[in-house]
Structure formats: structure tokens, C-alpha cells
């Protein structure tokens, strides 16, 4: 069922594999940075840094939720060529804490036929569940399914497994990796867990107040087309 749905978006396949999907150019969220970053199509960059270092602010800036200096490009197109709602559908931000404003789960989905429910351990009946009775782990997984409904080309994940148990963490990691491989989506994954960062990321970066620093080099870094400036 997953494959069926992903087949509907063949334009996501990149023709020129060396082209950068997401290019972040001198972005300054709330006066920090500037941060510059390239994430290639199908690449996952894991991002760590002490709390308060501005990881969430950087994700918010990329998703265009706060005013900031600098620009972001998707497939070499500047963000200003997209309307803000279009941009956020393609550059999906999954916040640490998801918000739900209706009583039932299904009302939050554009279409109750969601192909990601089953891989995440839910059934179609989950759509009738009451939001007030969801656990924090269920909310986190459903928020991921909800964000994927827009078929985003870039995923900005803010600790997407923070409230999950080890077994479910594995399921979520696999789903995101599968989605990335199938659609060649670029992924920026904020994680506090060094092991997870190494597991899911093709590259690892650490956020400092003035830019990125290369975190732990897994030796394969040179193979990736993306490069960062270290301010």
C-alpha cells in the first residue's frame, strides 16, 4: 500500500542526482548564524546540538514560520517563487510536540485513506479515535503520518522519536528511510541521541551559535555532494 501511494508521485524522482534538493543560504533565525547548508536529494543530515542552540529555530526558519534573513532554495528555485502554503506542503516541518484541534483523529487528515497508518502500527479505525485519548507516542507517530500526506519533498524532523519506545523508534526510522529512498526527499533530522544520529544520517552536523561544525565523521563524508561552510 505504501508503494502504491508513492508511485503516484514519480516527479519526485530526481533526474540529475547531483542537484541539491535543499539549499539553505545564510539563514539567520533570530539573529543567530548565519547558517548555510546543502542537502542533496535522498540525503539525510542529522543535526545535534545542546538544547537552546537554536535547532528548532533553524527548522522554523527553513519552513518560513518566522521572519529571518537569508534565503532557502528547493531544486534551485528560491523560496519566494512558492506561496508560503505551497512551500510548507513541500518542506514539511514536524515539530517536537504535535497539535490537534479537532476531537477525532480523522478530521486532521486531508484524506482518511492514509497509507502510512499501517506501517506505523495503526489501522483504518484509528481515524475514529478521540485525540484526547491518544498517548504522546501515538500522537507523535500520527503527526508523522499526517505530515507525509502532503507528500513533502523535504522533511524537517524535530526529534521525531522523542516519545517513542525502542521498538517503535525502529519502525519510525525505517518508515522515514523508506520514504526518503522512494521519493528522494531530503531530510534534516534533529536528534539528541548520538547513536540515532549516526544510524539515520548520511552526514552529521552539530549546531553552534555561529554555524555548523562537522560532528562525527563516518569516513564516507567525501562521497556526498553537499558541503557546509563553517563560520
Amino acid at each position: 500500500m505504501v508503494a502504491l501511494c508513492l508511485d503516484k508521485i514519480p516527479e519526485m524522482k530526481l533526474e540529475r542526482p547531483n542537484m541539491n534538493y535543499l539549499h539553505v543560504n545564510d539563514v539567520r533565525p533570530h539573529g543567530r548564524g548565519p547558517y548555510s547548508l546543502n542537502i542533496a536529494a535522498g540525503e539525510c543530515v542529522s543535526l545535534s546540538g545542546p538544547s537552546g542552540s537554536g535547532k528548532s529555530l533553524l527548522l522554523r526558519a527553513i519552513a518560513d514560520l518566522d521572519p529571518h534573513d537569508g534565503d532557502v532554495f528547493l531544486d534551485n528555485l528560491p523560496r519566494s517563487t512558492f506561496t508560503a502554503p505551497q512551500w510548507r506542503k513541500q518542506v514539511a516541518l514536524l515539530p517536537v510536540e504535535s497539535q490537534w484541534w479537532l476531537d477525532d483523529v480523522g478530521g486532521h487528515f486531508p484524506d482518511t485513506d492514509c497509507p502510512w497508518l499501517k506501517p506505523l502500527g495503526f489501522t483504518h479505525k484509528t481515524m475514529q479515535w478521540q485525540v484526547s485519548r491518544l498517548s504522546s507516542g501515538e500522537k507523535q507517530r500520527l503527526a508523522l503520518a499526517r505530515a507525509l500526506m502532503n507528500h513533502p519533498r523535504v522533511l524537517l524532523l524535530d526529534e521525531p522519536t522523542a516519545s517513542l519506545d525502542p521498538q517503535t523508534i525502529g519502525i519510525v526510522e525505517k518508515l522515514i528511510t523508506d520514504y526518503r529512498n522512494e521519493t528522494q526527499a531530503a531530510v534534516l533530522w534533529v536528534s539528541h541521541d548520538a547513536q540515532q544520529a549516526a544510524r539515520v544520517g548520511n552526514r552529521q552536523l552539530k549546531l553552534t551559535a555561529h554555524g555548523f561544525s562537522d560532528h562525527i565523521d563516518d569516513g564516507a563524508d567525501g562521497a556526498h555532494p553537499g558541503s557546509e561552510n563553517i563560520a
Binding site: 519552513a63 514560520l65 508560503a84 502554503p85 505551497q86 510548507r88 506542503k89 514539511a92 516541518l93 515539530p95 510536540e97 504535535s98 497539535q99 484541534w101 499526517r146 505530515a147 502532503n150
Partner: peptide, 22 residues
């Protein structure tokens, strides 16, 4: 009070009118 909800709806691609309609 509901800033988080409004922003969540924006993150999912809602327009400003849709995000504040309720």
C-alpha cells in the same frame, strides 16, 4: 492561547485564512 495550533496548521500547508477560520 492557540498559537501552537495555528502554527501547526500553517506547517501542514494551511493558508492564513484557513489557519484562523475557527
Amino acid at each position: 492561547q492557540q498559537r501552537a495550533v495555528i502554527e501547526q496548521r500553517l506547517m501542514l500547508g494551511a493558508t492564513r485564512q484557513e489557519a484562523i477560520a475557527d
